[in-house]
Computed example of a mutant assay.
Amino acid sequence: MVAAAHRISRGSDFDRTLRAGVRVTTRDLVVHVLPLSTVPTDPGDPRNTGVAVFGGPWLGLIVSKAVGNAVVRHRVARRLRAAFATSRDRFPITETMMVVRARPSAADCDSPELASQLVEALERRRVRDAFANTEDRILR
Results as ranks from 00 to 15, higher is better:
L139C: 07
A5K: 12
K65T: 15
D45M: 00
L18T: 06
H32T: 10
A5M: 12
T134M: 09
V71P: 06
S105C: 03
Q117I: 06
V24G: 09
T38G: 08
N133W: 07
P40F: 07
G55D: 14
R23D: 13
V39T: 14
T96W: 01
T26E: 00
R10P: 04
L36A: 14
T49G: 15
L114W: 06
V22A: 07
N48M: 09
A3Y: 07
A107P: 13
D45K: 08
V2R: 01
D45A: 08
A130R: 10
L122N: 01
V119F: 01
M98C: 14
R81D: 06
V51G: 14
L80R: 08
E113K: 07
V99F: 02
M97S: 11
A83N: 09
F54Y: 12
V100C: 01
A106C: 07
R101P: 01
M98P: 04
D136W: 02
R73N: 03
I62R: 04
R137H: 10
D28W: 03
P92S: 02
V33F: 02
P92R: 10
D42M: 04
H74L: 02
A20S: 11
S111M: 07
M98W: 07
A132G: 15
P57I: 08
A70H: 12
T26A: 12
T25I: 11
T17Q: 05
P35V: 13
D13K: 05
V63C: 11
S105I: 14
A102N: 00
R7W: 00
S37H: 05
R124F: 00
M97E: 12
A20D: 12
V51Y: 10
H74E: 04
G55C: 14
L139V: 10
R47Q: 13
D42T: 00
F84W: 08
V127Q: 03
A102I: 00
A77K: 15
N69D: 13
A102H: 00
A85H: 06
R47C: 05
N69L: 02
H6F: 03
V76C: 00
C109F: 03
V127H: 03
R103E: 10
V67Y: 08
R10Y: 00
D15L: 09
V100W: 01
F84P: 00
G11V: 06
S116F: 05
V24R: 04
L80Y: 01
D129M: 04
D108S: 04
F84T: 01
A132V: 15
G11W: 04
R47S: 08
R137C: 08
V30M: 09
D13Y: 03
R7I: 13
F54K: 15
V53G: 13
R19G: 02
N69P: 07
A106G: 05
F54A: 15
L122P: 12
A107R: 09
I138P: 04
A106W: 06
M98V: 15
D42A: 06
R126C: 06
P112F: 09
R27Q: 11
L18Q: 08
V71A: 06
V127S: 02
C109P: 04
P46H: 02
D110A: 11
L122A: 04
L114M: 05
A115S: 12
R125E: 15
V72I: 09
G50E: 15
R73T: 03
K65P: 10
S12F: 12
L114S: 00
C109N: 05
R140S: 14
I93F: 05
R27S: 14
A3L: 14
D13A: 09
R10A: 07
G21W: 01
P40C: 08
A130M: 09
M97V: 07
N48H: 05
V53E: 11
